[in-house]
């Protein structure tokens, strides 16, 4: 999107919370194709707050996936496997 297009966008969205819910459904893969087309195609291109919300939602998800995962300690994994084998042997 270029600066000129941005300037022509609305700076207020009267339905911001509803839009945000819809936007989240879309990103969660829970929206219908029709909802998706309408929102992503029409609304997002003309509404600045929703356009910003979209990028924020995407960025937060990326950050969560990058920063909030943990690996199980290997000794714990081994111990669980071992216990199951013992269970089977009984």
């Amino acid at each position: 999107m270029n600066a000129n297009e941005m300037k022509n966008m609305k700076h207020d969205c009267p339905h911001q919370q509803e839009c945000l819910q819809l936007l989240q459904s879309i990103l969660d893969g829970e929206a219908t194709q029709e909802q998706k087309d309408k929102f992503m195609g029409n609304h997002l291109e003309e509404c600045m707050p929703c356009y910003q919300n979209y990028h924020l939602e995407v960025a937060i998800r990326d950050l969560l996936r990058k920063k909030c995962a943990n690996q199980a300690p290997q000794d714990l994994v081994d111990s669980i496997k071992q216990k199951v084998i013992q269970n089977l042997a009984r």
Partner: peptide, 27 residues
């Protein structure tokens, strides 16, 4: 198991509790 460990950790917020919870769950 990694996703499950992370879930256990995020629920308990303690590494030791997460380990116990994960092991109990798998057994």
């Amino acid at each position: 198991i990694n996703a499950m460990y992370n879930f256990a950790y995020r629920l308990t917020l303690e590494r030791d509790d997460a380990k116990d919870l994960l092991q109990d769950t798998y057994l």
